[in-house]
Design a protein around this nucleic acid. Structure first.
Lengths: 203, 203
DNA sequence: GCATGAACTGGCCGGCCGGTCAATTGCCGC
DNA sequence: GCGGCAATTGACCGGCCGGCCAGTTCATGC
């Protein structure tokens, strides 16, 4: 029958280990996860993890790399395929980013853990992403679509901060009285954000 | 001379333990701090920490309580002493909150750790704060100072998310090209935020 | 068909973990 | 001044930690 199912498959093993490690690290953070937990969850021996990844620290780096490089690639593709530069591009970008975080809570938490570590490596990864976004905003400013008296990178950063923290601290703010749903918050944010970016009325 | 310096002082001991615990927990997170580290840093025995606080978990709760209750009290006082309800009240509130986080990086990180834990307890603590802020916004909306088509709690949440995440993920975004200083970002955020909140021009 | 090396296993290591406990020290009310 | 009790100490516990290593299994190239 299927030979590959019962035989050795180091690539599959690596993927199983990475998947188990991602889930546990995302839930509990690096320090609170033991190699024994990862071994049990992935169905392999603790020694085998060391064989493939070397150490707990190296596995953590590999886990972050695997999860976040895919995320950056996805986002970059979204941004590059956009051609027109107008107000709706930014609006759609915000919505896409919001939906992405909504659909990928693991990425949200993984990013949060790296922030707590002060890890600068993955900041570099999406710096290119941010630069590209800021460039689009700058073009829209020059085209008179947005006000020109604000730093384009700040415009990008502003919505990234809002979306990220909305999902990151969800358990916290969800208890605040009168807080609306994801959709309602996104809608109100966009209303204030987009109107705040409108150029001053011509005088 | 000073008798209190060499003699027993359980209150001082408690404060020393809490101070050391706060610093370590803020830096490394709960899971990565050992009772031995806290003992060494605070200059007391590990057993003594157990005597005063019972367990590592209880010390963690006491540490959060001690640090965050002061923070909430400070903020609440700020908000309550405000009397007039106009646009500059919100603007000043944002600035005060931004400055507070700027001056208290420990609070920023402590809040971040509790978010990662999914701790709901301290969310309750500042729910009253958020409710009061939202009420002020609602009053301003009724007074025609702000647009009325957005949820007041979302208005409050929006600036809290921006300020919090700005400092929380600083090491990350600081690498983005063209990013400005704290002051420049705050200024640009306020410009977009306050203009976005302006009521639609009367027709 | 067999040598080779990677994939994989189980057991073991020293060390640190949070927590306990019996014993000592010093303050304070009587 | 002394009895009692909280504050404080250091030694100790079982258990888990990350990592290592000697040995076994298996695919693959010759």
């Amino acid at each position: 029958m299927n030979t590959a199912a019962t035989t050795r498959d180091p690539e599959l093993t690596r993927r199983q280990i990475l998947a188990a490690a991602l889930e546990l690290f995302v839930d509990q953070g690096f320090a609170d996860v033991s190699m024994r937990q990862i071994a049990e969850k992935s169905g392999v021996t603790k020694s085998l993890i060391h064989h493939h990844f070397g150490s707990k620290d190296a596995l953590w780096e590999a886990t972050k790399e695997a999860a976040l490089s895919r995320y950056v690639a996805d986002q970059m593709q979204e941004l590059e395929q956009a051609t027109t530069v107008d107000g709706s591009l930014l609006r759609d970008g915000v919505i896409k980013y919001f939906r992405f975080l909504q659909d990928n809570p693991q990425v949200v938490r993984l990013l949060a853990w790296t922030h707590m570590e002060g890890d600068a490596t993955c900041g570099e990864m999406d710096a290119a992403l941010a630069r590209l976004g800021a460039e689009r905003v700058r073009q829209a400013q020059q085209g008179g679509v947005f006000r020109s008296d604000v730093n384009p990178m700040h415009v990008v950063t502003m919505f990234v901060l809002v979306c990220t923290q909305w999902f990151q601290a969800r358990s916290h703010h969800a208890q605040w009285p009168g807080m609306g749903s994801d959709e309602e918050f996104l809608s109100d944010f966009l209303a204030i954000y987009m109107d705040g970016l409108a150029p001053p009325p011509a005088d």
